[in-house]
Amino acid sequence: MTFALVFLAIIMATVIGWLLRQTLNTQPWEANDPVENQPGRGVISSDPAKIGLISFIAVVTSLFALFLSAYLMRMKLGDWRPLPEPNLLWLNTAILVLASFAFQLTRGAATRGQLLTVKIGLVAGGACTSLFLLGQLVAWQQLNASGYFMAGNPANSFFYLLTALHGLHLLGGMWVWGRTTMRLFAGADTRSVRLSVELCAVYWHYLLFVWVGLFALLLST
């Protein structure tokens, strides 16, 4: 559980540290009038949706950290036989990097209001992601074809489980991507999709980070 604990400790330390800063040097029992047009002390200057996404990312981090903890604990038992990762995964990783890159470009274009670039970037990002997901499915096929079944060995089980979980999170992102893209092609201007694009970009970077971590762990064990 050390792995999960480290991650959770970081998250909890951030949360509690921030909260503590709100509570120090305050005399809550003193009444006073709030200054006009000043947000209350401790308001995080950001859009609620961003705070929502960051909180969600903390939840997903907890989820993956716990799965990886389970992975590391289960690995120590005697029957663990590592499986050879298909080389296709390297290609998939490159594609996911491209997707992340596309979203980053789109994010910049959306801020500057370049409609065409946003459209191209979104389509490219979505296409790369779909390609990545497809590639993962092919990788599963290859493993299955060479006899590495889900229930054959815990290493196999974890491989399928972790890749599936990561893929599902990407699919969730694709839902938001789909809605944003549809809105854009139905004639929305860049200003109205800027937030969605930005959130997508953050989420894709995060899932790329998770995938790189997962892939590194799968390769090294």
Partner: peptide, 20 residues
């Protein structure tokens, strides 16, 4: 839960600090 956390952080009215 994401709702509760975000609402408490973001939607407090004027003057409602965390310590109030």
């Amino acid at each position: 839960g994401l709702n509760y956390v975000t609402t408490i952080l973001q939607a407090r009215t004027r003057g409602m600090t965390m310590m109030r």
